[in-house]
Design a protein around this nucleic acid. Structure first.
Lengths: 240, 240
DNA sequence: GCCTAGGTCCCGTAC
DNA sequence: GTACGGGGCCTAGGC
């Protein structure tokens, strides 16, 4: 319904509110001064500073500071939060397995603690993804080139699954790799891997590779040439 | 110092608090029911739902729902926030250039608006990064193989910069690619690109490629074999 | 559980 | 500004 908020709470009040809220499946926001230590896939420490900490009931932990999109420290969903009081300080520890990792936050000053239920949410509906680009090609294969015929999507090679497998006007196998945005050398490497694997595995001697993307960097274009691959300019959003 | 909070504010109170706080360089948290529309690199819409919205003075916008690490909608830093009242509704629009994109949030219900100053923050200190792995190798090159001598880091090839360039016991050029975690086929493709470029560009006929990583997938190992590359198991964290 | 690749990836750094 | 690769990337979809 509403939001439960404690301004400058003492540690006991804060601990109780956070504990009960997380148990109830609510989200908690904590504004205060804290240190953060992470141990898991790497190790990191963060000196005392003022931050916004968000705990979600699914185990997600976010530590945000004044700037930037990314949390300065975090825990992905799947773990558990634990609140403890040690030497009169509020400690929040978030642990998860696989990988085994933990974040420990020690608050030296609590400016505000809030808790609120957020109902389950819908997914967002996106247009302009790589999948939309693939769909465009399947509906209008000549956008790739005259005579191109798609035969399969996600066809497996020993190097991985190819976006679109098909044949050209001569019946030569073609591997199409789609990218929704400007591509660099990595995308060319990906396509080259698929083509090389297909040439080893398909009965045909030659396999062509075509990269679909709105634009391409100079270096990527040079790499394309080296591998005798082709680039076709195409946008995920249909431009009329 | 503290946190300014309005519980169930009317739209005018909310608009004023958000406007003034962002102007003052403070962070705002808004809990409420809203729809979100994004237009930029892609387009997306999100139906009405209960969310936590965070606005930072650097232009960052985060829309979080009850679950998950990633915001359900967002704006990276660099843009500007704008608050407007339209038909008695609070609208928050975040715009930025390069790329040109905007997020528009329409609140149908405001449960809480908070604002607070967060002082500038330090960066976090991390150990266990790829750079640590590279450092380990430079200090103890025999970890790569007996007789390996590093000569240069970030040496440029037409395919991109290589992590470590050196020579083996026979004086043959060696390109070393370091990964801090288990690698898949993409890392092999990256190394293969560098080796191929080096073979074209260096005066020597043969260039060897060695992948350094704690572990490797089956498919990546097969790709390695195909390209006559080598993998050496090594962890970024020094194990005693 | 692991593997594979996409992402409005974000981000730093070098050019 | 662009470009390139790292990231505790996260996340979805297969197997």
């Amino acid at each position: 319904m509403g939001v439960t908020t404690r301004s400058r709470p003492d540690v006991h009040t804060a601990a109780e509110l956070i504990d009960e809220s997380l148990d109830a499946g609510h989200v908690c926001s904590i504004v205060g001064r804290c240190t953060v230590a992470y141990d898991g896939r790497t190790q990191s420490t963060l000196p005392a500073g003022e931050r916004l900490v968000v705990c979600k009931p699914d185990g997600t932990l976010l530590v945000h500071h004044a700037a930037g999109h990314k949390p300065v420290n975090w825990q992905p969903p799947g773990g558990t939060h634990d609140i403890t009081l040690i030497d009169g300080e509020l400690h929040l520890q978030s642990r998860r397995d696989a990988p085994d990792e933990r974040v420990e936050i020690r608050f030296t000053d609590l400016r505000q603690v809030s808790a609120y239920a957020l109902e389950e949410d819908h997914d967002r509906d996106v247009t302009g993804s790589e999948d939309d680009l693939r769909q465009r090609i399947l509906e209008q294969p000549t956008l790739v080139e005259e005579g191109f015929q798609p035969r399969m999507t996600e066809r497996e090679t020993s190097a991985g699954p190819v976006d679109i497998y098909g044949v050209d006007a001569n019946g030569t196998p073609v591997i199409v790799e789609c990218k929704r945005r400007r591509v660099g050398p990595d995308a060319v490497g990906q396509l080259a891997r698929y083509v090389a694997a297909a040439e080893r595995e398909y009965t045909t001697k030659t396999v062509r590779g075509i990269l679909i993307a709105p634009s391409i960097t100079d270096r990527a274009e040079r790499e394309l040439t080296q591998h005798e691959l082709k680039w076709v300019a195409l946008d995920p959003i249909h431009s009329v």
